[in-house]
Amino acid sequence: MAKITFITSDNETITVEGNSGSVMELAVKNNVKGIDGDCGGVCSCATCHVHVEPEFTSKTGEASELESDMLEFDDLTNEYSRLSCQLQVSDDLDGVVFKVAK
């Protein structure tokens, strides 16, 4: 079981637990504001955009080329940006904190 924390744009902190699926799915299931996951997780809509808190980037790894191409055209993108549909929930992500971009 991984504990994952989301901080929304209005500074609400939500910590949830999960052991499968994507981080986007976990956020949607827990009604995390600003994460919609419109396309269901196929990397087509960028409505699941998060910024990884800098100390956790080694746990989340880097975006794939197709994911980076998607982020390239998002105004809220910075060097810590990821699409949470492309992050699988596992013990490796235990303790990670994401800031919701939108």
Partner: peptide, 11 residues
């Protein structure tokens, strides 16, 4: 198809 960055709904 797992990764599908289509633009069928625009972009």
């Amino acid at each position: 198809r797992k990764i599908n960055p289509h633009v069928g709904f625009g972009f």
